[in-house]
Design a protein around this nucleic acid. Structure first.
Lengths: 206, 206
DNA sequence: CCTACCGATCGGTAGG
DNA sequence: CCTACCGATCGGTAGG
C-alpha cells in the first residue's frame, strides 16, 4: 500500500509491457515494435519501458518467447492428459485450428509465431536463431507424438514422420493465411480435413 | 550520347530502383524498405529515388507488383504452352518448387510475395488490399486449371477444387519455410511428394 | 520509475 | 536528377 514500488509491482509492469509487445508485434511485426509506441500505450516513459529489458532486441526476444509460451499453453496444454499417439495428436490438431481461428483473442494480428518465422527467416542474428530454435522445438514435439503413434501400431512402422510434419506445417500456414488475409470462413473445416487426409493415408519411407 | 538524361535513361533508373527494392524488401520486408538505404545502394540522392514514385507507399506497391510479375514469369511462364489441365498443373507445381528453392537468385531473402502476404495480412490499407488481390489472382489461376482437369475427366467431376488450392497453398508455404528458415535440403522432394499425394487422392465435395 | 537529452535516421519538400 | 533542408521519431543514455 506504500507508494514505493515493490518487486511485485515491477514484475506486474514487466508483464504488462510483454503483453502489449506481443499484441503490437502480432500486427506490426517484431521489427515494427517501437519503445515509444509501447510507452505511450502503457502510460510509461520510454526509459521506464526499456529499463525492464535493457535493449529493444532483448524485448523482442522476450516477446517471442512469450508467444511461444502462449502457443504451448493453448495448443498443447489442453491435451496433456490425453493418451500419447494419435489420440493426443488429433487433440492438438483440433486445438491448433481453434488457436489460429481465434488467434485475435490473444494476438490482434494473428499468431505472432508465424509472423516472426517469416519476418526473420532470411536474416541473421539472435532473433533469427531464436525463431528457428522455437519452430524446431514444436516440430520435434510433433514428430515425437507421431513416432509414438507408429510404435503403438496406430500408424505403419515405416511411416515417414518428417513428411507428415512437413504437411501439417503447411496445413496450418495455409489456415493462418486463410484466416488472416482472406477472413475465409471455411478455413478451419478445410484445415481439419487436410489433417485427416494426411493421417488416414500416411506417407511411408521410400 | 548527350549528357542530358533521356526518357530511356529515366526508365532504366526506375527499373534499377525497382530491382533493388524487391531485393531489399525480400529480406527486410516492404515496411523495412527505406529510401535512404536504396539511395545509398544505387548511388542516388533520396530525392532522386523518391521522384520516380512520389511516396514510399507507391514504391512499395510497385515493388509488390514487380514481385508478382516475377512469380508469373518464372512459375507460369515456362508452362504456357503445355496442355491445360493436369499436365500444365504439374508443370506449374514443378516450376513453383524450383522457384522457391532457387528464390535467392531473384530475391536474396526468399519469395517477396510470401513475405508480403504475412507482413500485411492483419493491417489495413492499400498494401493489404494489393497483397490480398494478388494472392487471390494466383489462387484463382490455380483453381481454373483444376476445373479444366475436372472437365477433361483427369480429376473426378465432383472434385473439391478449393480444398486442393488450400492444400497446395500450404505445401508451398511449408516449402518456403523449410528453405528459408531451416535450409532443409529435402524440402523440394517433400513438397513435390505432398503435391502428388493431394492430386492422386483428390478430395471431393461433401 | 522519471525528466531531459543525445546523434542518427526517417519520409518528404523546396527550389533548381 | 541534385543540394539543402524540414519536423518527427528512432533506440538509447545520464542522472536521479
Amino acid at each position: 500500500m506504500s507508494p514505493r514500488r515493490s518487486v511485485a509491482d515491477a514484475l506486474d509492469t514487466r508483464a504488462r509491457i510483454l503483453d502489449r509487445s506481443v499484441a503490437l508485434a502480432s500486427v506490426e511485426g517484431l521489427d515494427g515494435l517501437t519503445i515509444g509506441r509501447l510507452a505511450a500505450d502503457l502510460g510509461l516513459s520510454k526509459a521506464g519501458v526499456l529499463g525492464h529489458f535493457g535493449t529493444k532486441e532483448a524485448l523482442q526476444l522476450a516477446a517471442l518467447r512469450e508467444a511461444s509460451a502462449i502457443f504451448g499453453r493453448l495448443v498443447w496444454g489442453p491435451n496433456n492428459d490425453l493418451a500419447p499417439g494419435l489420440v493426443r495428436l488429433r487433440g492438438v490438431c483440433a486445438s491448433w485450428a481453434d488457436y489460429l481461428v481465434h488467434a485475435r483473442d490473444h494476438f490482434p494480428g494473428g499468431c505472432l509465431f508465424t509472423t516472426a518465422a517469416v519476418e526473420y527467416d532470411s536474416r541473421t542474428g539472435p532473433l533469427h536463431d531464436a525463431v528457428a530454435r522455437l519452430t524446431g522445438f514444436w516440430q520435434r514435439r510433433l514428430a515425437t507424438e507421431l513416432r509414438h503413434a507408429a510404435t503403438l501400431g496406430q500408424l505403419p512402422a515405416d511411416t515417414d514422420v518428417d513428411q507428415i510434419v512437413f504437411e501439417l506445417t503447411g496445413t496450418y500456414l495455409s489456415l493462418n493465411q486463410a484466416v488472416q488475409l482472406d477472413a475465409a470462413p471455411d478455413g478451419q473445416r478445410r484445415a481439419l480435413r487436410a489433417v485427416e487426409r494426411t493421417l488416414v493415408n500416411p506417407p511411408t519411407l521410400v
